[in-house]
Simulated assay, not measured.
Amino acid sequence: MIGQVENITRFGLFVKISADELTDEIKKSTDKTVSKNSGLLRWSQFPKNHPKVQIGDLIGVEVFKVHEDGKIDLNYQEKNFKNVYAEFLESSQQRITELEQKNRELN
């Protein structure tokens, strides 16, 4: 799954993840219920050669562990966003081109 970096601390990255994807991941790994939609990706789980991360960046993560108190530990997962979202990017670009053409016709 893909998450968005919410906060950077001395012990790791807090990553916001989709509630739908989170529910699916948790169902696969455990029967625990979780109300939170962010988890902690510890620096020890983050690749050392990865470029610097900033708040708002998108990164690949997977649920590693769900604690009894609902806290979520994450693992880093290498994602090639262009491969994962190629179809979406292509259809979005086509739609933008169509809208630009209609806009030109109206003006």
Score class of each variant (00 low, 15 high):
L74D: 05
E87R: 10
N107R: 10
I2Y: 01
Q54T: 13
V53W: 06
V63I: 08
T9Q: 08
E98N: 14
K48Y: 08
V15W: 02
P47F: 02
T30I: 03
V61N: 03
D20L: 09
F81Y: 15
E98D: 11
K32W: 03
I96W: 06
I2L: 05
G60F: 05
V5H: 03
A19G: 01
K27N: 14
F14G: 13
V5Y: 08
R95I: 09
N83Q: 12
D57T: 05
L41M: 06
V63K: 07
L89R: 14
K16N: 11
E78V: 06
R42H: 12
G60Q: 07
L40S: 13
N75T: 04
N83A: 08
L106T: 11
D73H: 14
K79R: 15
G39W: 00
I59L: 06
K65Q: 11
K71M: 02
N103H: 14
L99H: 02
E6T: 05
P51M: 08
K36E: 11
E90W: 12
F88C: 01
K27Y: 03
K82N: 15
N49W: 01
E90V: 10
Q45V: 01
I26D: 01
F14S: 13
G56C: 09
V63A: 01
S18P: 04
K32S: 13
V34H: 04
A19T: 03
E78H: 11
A19N: 05
G60D: 10
E62A: 05
K28P: 03
I55T: 06
I72S: 04
D57V: 00
I96Y: 07
Y76H: 10
G12H: 01
S44V: 13
F46S: 01
D57K: 06
A86T: 09
G3I: 02
R42P: 13
P47K: 05
R10S: 13
I96Q: 13
E21H: 08
L41G: 12
S18W: 07
K102G: 08
S29G: 12
Q45M: 14
D69E: 10
N80Q: 10
E25Y: 01
N49T: 10
F81Q: 09
E21Q: 11
V53A: 05
N75A: 02
K82D: 15
L40N: 09
T33Q: 15
S91A: 10
S44A: 12
K36R: 14
L89K: 13
K27Q: 14
I8M: 10
I26P: 00
G56L: 09
A86M: 14
N75I: 00
I26N: 10
I55D: 02
K52A: 12
I2A: 02
I59C: 02
K27E: 13
K48H: 01
I59A: 03
F81P: 10
V84D: 15
K52C: 03
V53M: 04
I2R: 06
N7T: 12
I96K: 13
A19D: 02
F88P: 07
P51N: 06
K48Q: 11
E6Y: 04
K27A: 14
E68N: 15
V53Y: 05
L106E: 12
I72M: 04
K102W: 09
K36Y: 10
Y85S: 04
N103C: 08
Q54Y: 15
P51T: 02
E21D: 11
I8P: 00
S38K: 04
E87N: 12
G70S: 07
T30Y: 07
G70D: 07
P51V: 05
